[in-house]
Design a protein around this nucleic acid. Structure first.
Lengths: 222, 222
DNA sequence: TTTGTTAGTTGCAACTTGAAACTAACTGGG
DNA sequence: CCCAGTTAGTTTCAAGTTGCAACTAACAAA
């Protein structure tokens, strides 16, 4: 028989800070775990559509003021052990955003932590973040996903650092550039370069507009 | 403010029949769409744990009598348009099983349809099945996933047909065998061969026991 | 024993990859 | 003004991977 259930949405908001993959946490304003830092989340409303993507956008807007350039459903977590109040269900999403957008926005109570040096968090949020990181790692191997962590324009050396932070390993410069060329999601920003010191400046790139909201995959397969 | 919600689980049960990827539907015993064929589904109970995997196992058992060798959460579908009764949420799973298990089980009211020639189904079930097929296709490119469609023992030519049905394209025989070797999830069944006519019989293989419940990935990456 | 059919292997040319060594473009100090 | 230091970007090439064609292997049936 059906039992009515309180359903929530949580969001793993990921950014790159100091060349490391980081998660953004917000201070809880309600019990349980009030004032502790946890994944931003909230209740699902009956008007939320698009498989809870609407709810995720609304909650992210509320808690961070951001409209992320990339948002994807991650997995639904449910069970009796995850919340001290009893059985619960949460449709978890992950969002990618340029770190500068967070730092420049007015974000009281938001904090940023490297995903590989996280302390014990409330609920099953450590497990959720681990799942999100696994997904990012996986997709970073063969898609343009990490581009959404890079902001409007960026150099290839910077993008390579971002890929490396996502994958947790260093990449070959030549191979990386070949693959990016093959993916075909980038275009040069005419005449623009990134000068940052006493050395050759780097060419700036941006995502082609047709890929602004769509991942490009590059699968080698069997 | 929280609103209590009726939550369900639906299951996309996939098999290979006549070298084609097929979905198993069951006749609905309740309104709406009573007596129409749709994905097997049911309500989530408060004792269901493991992120609704328990619910999926229970419902699959009820509707098909099967305990599938592979079961994975696919995606959560939610919104106002998917059910005539109003806003609803469903945590959808997909299961892979050897076709023989379905045909041999006593399964009143179960029917099997090729995923690429499906008529209009109730709710958003066409969209759900399309999402499942996309996921299978994706994972078949670089993992041992299709092995779960093959039963206990199988020949490499048969497994190749299964991969081809999942991917929707033919594969090179030598490359396929090299990749399977590289994946390392198979072992020969000593002395056993599959004879099926006037020709050389094929060596039989099975999944190594350590991979019975775990996908092996083979990613070439950037 | 020959023929047809499917299983499984070998050889090879074309392509992909990764490391090292190269050239390019800038700043700042002598 | 030029040289050293630093990072950007390209070239070269050897090693590895892939996909096709042609091969050999094992069976049944005629």
């Amino acid at each position: 028989m059906p039992e009515p259930i309180i359903s929530t949405v949580d969001i793993v908001l990921l950014i790159i800070k100091d060349d490391r993959l980081c998660v953004t946490l917000s201070k809880r304003d309600k019990e349980p775990y009030v004032n502790q830092e946890a994944l931003p989340g909230g209740y699902i409303h009956a008007q939320d559509d698009r498989d809870c993507l609407d709810a995720a956008v609304r909650i992210l807007q509320q808690k961070t003021g951001l409209l992320p350039p990339y948002l994807e459903q991650l997995k639904t977590f449910a069970g009796a052990a995850r919340d001290p109040r009893g059985w619960s269900i949460s449709v978890v999403h992950f969002a990618l955003v340029d770190a500068d957008l967070i730092l420049s926005a007015t974000n009281p109570g938001l904090t940023i932590w490297p995903v590989d040096a996280l302390r014990r968090l409330p609920f099953d949020h450590n497990e959720i973040i681990a799942t999100a990181v696994e997904r990012i790692r996986n997709k970073s191997q063969y898609s343009s996903l990490p581009c959404y962590l890079a902001g409007e324009t960026f150099s290839l050396p910077r993008l390579q650092k971002i890929y490396e932070a996502c994958l947790g390993e260093t990449l070959n410069k030549v191979s990386f550039r070949r693959k990016m060329d093959e993916l075909g999601v980038l275009e040069t920003v005419a005449g623009q370069t990134e000068s940052a010191g006493a050395h050759r400046p780097a060419q700036l790139y941006r995502l082609k507009s047709e890929f602004k909201n769509q991942l490009k995959l590059l699968v080698r397969g069997l």
